Computed example of a mutant assay.
Amino acid sequence: MRRARLLYVPFWATFVFLYLPIAVLVVMSFNSGESAYTYEGFSLKWYGELAGDERVVKGLANTIIVAFGSTALATVLGTLLAVGLARYTRSKTLDALALMPAVLPDLVVGIGLLVFYSTIQLTLGLYSVVLAHAVFSMAFVAAVVRTRLTNADPSLEEASLDLGAGPVVTFMKITLPQLAPGIVAGALLAFTLSLDEFVIAFFTVGNSEQTLPIVIYSMVRFGVTPEINALASLLLLVSFTAVIAGQRLTKIGESERAPD
Rank of each mutant, 00 (worst) to 15 (best):
L163T: 11
V135S: 01
S155K: 10
R148L: 01
T150I: 14
A139D: 10
N151Q: 15
T150F: 12
S128H: 07
A142K: 12
V130M: 15
V130H: 14
S155G: 02
E158Y: 04
S160N: 02
T150L: 15
T150K: 15
L149N: 07
D153G: 01
H133K: 06
L131T: 12
N151E: 13
M138I: 07
G164S: 04
V141E: 03
D162A: 11
E158T: 01
D153N: 10
R148N: 10
S155R: 05
L163F: 11
E158C: 05
M138F: 03
S160R: 03
V145I: 06
A143W: 08
A142Q: 14
V141H: 06
N151D: 12
S160F: 09
S128A: 08
P154Y: 11
D162Q: 06
L149K: 09
L131G: 00
L163M: 15
V145R: 04
L161M: 13
A143G: 00
G164V: 10
S155Q: 13
S160M: 06
R148C: 02
A142S: 15
E157W: 09
S128I: 03
G164A: 11
A152S: 15
L131R: 05
S160K: 06
A159I: 05
G164K: 08
D162P: 01
T147Y: 01
R146F: 05
A159L: 07
A152C: 13
H133T: 03
V135H: 06
R146G: 14
D162H: 06
H133F: 14
A152T: 14
A159V: 05
A143Y: 08
V145W: 05
L149T: 08
L131C: 12
T147R: 06
A142H: 12
F136G: 02
N151H: 13
D162I: 10
E158V: 07
A134K: 02
F136S: 00
R148S: 05
S137T: 13
A139L: 09
V129L: 13
A143R: 14
H133V: 02
A139F: 09
F136E: 06
R146V: 00
A132F: 14
V144P: 02
S137R: 05
V145C: 05
L156W: 11
A132N: 12
V130Y: 15
V145N: 05
A159M: 10
L163D: 04
A152K: 04
F136L: 14
R148Q: 10
S137Q: 11
N151P: 00
G164E: 08
L149D: 03
A143E: 00
L156M: 15
T150P: 00
P154K: 06
E157I: 01
V141Y: 13
F140N: 00
A139V: 11
F136N: 09
A139K: 07
V130Q: 13
T150G: 12
E157D: 07
V144M: 03
A143P: 01
V129T: 12
E158P: 06
H133N: 15
L161V: 08
L156C: 09
M138H: 01
A132I: 08
V135P: 00
A134Q: 03
L163W: 13
